[in-house]
């Protein structure tokens, strides 16, 4: 048996790959979300395949005749070694719950689990290490907000301020997502700058664990109408694990009346977090009847309209945008 890298842009390999993937009941999402794909061959028959995107294993499929043997180990081992050769050692996999033990058998550990799937990780970092590195606080009434803050607006400020009034301590987790117009490090700095006067607010990086749930791969979800529920429930479980370790008993979210996805997200959160953690939905802040949103700020940036931006953001964010306007416009023009 030979293990080789395969090029999915080559129709010869793509057809073999697609056949195996679909026979195994997997759904092909976006090929742009694959960094590398490997194939294991018996003579010239593709009998197993696996891929990765950044540090996430994906599209693992094995011909039924070869399942239950050493092929799975060989596949996962090859993918991990290939990532290691690029100095990527912390590896995730999202999988159907029924395959959880197969990955545990190879040294993976569970991060979180929902009725649709399990998230596991292996390597030189873990969720327990992430939790141990977060600042610990004391109080009876510890709450959390998770935000992308792309960028930090007066709407975010309102949310944090309300939470700050109603809690002993508020953790603000800033979601990691480098695809955002504002880089993760910039977003964290702007949240810190914009909440500096609130003494009971702790701003922390979401790291590898508070990420945008839309990036959760769903190639193994058969019923496509379940995808968002799967993603949001798993995201809620990851949050719950971190929140419980920090004694967080409440999560604040902003109302999102126009986004059905966010509505599903809030429902999933409520369902998973209760009873240990209460979800409180706060209404959105508006200026003169105009709801503040980061989308509107980014729109105004692309139109080079500082006056509109000023309406929606605190001074700290405004100053940053003003100083970096050229760079931000360049990022927008480059497709970010």
């Amino acid at each position: 048996m030979d293990t080789i890298k395969i090029d999915l842009n080559d129709p010869y390999y793509y057809q073999q790959w697609q056949k195996l993937i679909e026979e195994e009941g997997l759904y092909i999402e976006n090929l742009d979300d694959i960094t590398e794909t490997i194939g294991i061959y018996d003579e010239d028959k593709l009998i197993a395949t696996g891929s990765y995107f950044n540090n996430v294993l994906k599209y693992l499929a094995i011909d039924p005749k070869y399942q239950g043997g050493n092929v799975f180990n060989k596949l996962v081992s090859y993918l991990i070694s290939d990532l290691a050769s690029q100095n990527i050692f912390h590896v995730f996999v999202f999988t159907k719950t029924q395959y959880q033990s197969s990955f545990e058998y190879l040294g993976f550990k569970m991060v979180a689990q929902s009725r649709f799937s399990t998230l596991l990780e292996t390597g030189d970092y873990s969720i327990d290490q992430y939790i141990s590195e977060l600042p610990k606080v004391s109080g009876n009434n510890i709450s959390a907000i998770v935000m992308n803050a792309n960028p930090f607006t007066l709407g975010h400020r309102y949310l944090v301020e309300e939470a700050s009034k109603k809690s002993d301590v508020v953790y603000v987790f800033v979601v990691s997502q480098n695809a955002s117009l504002f880089k993760t490090s910039e977003r964290i700095e702007l949240v810190k700058a914009g909440t500096k006067d609130l003494n009971n607010v702790v701003v922390v990086a979401g790291g590898d664990y508070m990420v945008s749930f839309v990036t959760f791969p769903s190639y193994f979800i058969k019923s496509r109408s379940d995808v968002v529920t799967y993603q949001t429930e798993l995201d809620a479980q990851v949050f719950k694990r971190i929140a419980e370790a920090l004694n967080i008993t409440k999560r604040f979210v902003g109302e999102e009346p126009y986004s059905p996805t966010t509505e599903i997200y809030n429902q999933s959160l409520k369902k998973i977090l209760i009873p240990e953690i209460v979800l409180e939905v706060l209404e959105r802040k508006a200026v003169g009847g105009d709801i503040i949103s980061a989308t509107k700020v980014r729109q105004a940036i692309s139109e080079d309209n500082l006056e509109v931006i000023r309406k929606y953001v605190p001074e700290t964010t405004f100053d940053f945008i003003k100083t970096n306007l050229k760079d931000l416009l360049r990022r927008i023009n480059n497709g970010n």
Binding site: N70, V76, Y78, F89
Partner: peptide, 10 residues
């Protein structure tokens, strides 16, 4: 820095 050696094969 982190380093890895070996495989997961039998």
């Amino acid at each position: 820095h982190t380093a890895l050696a070996g495989t997961l094969e039998s």
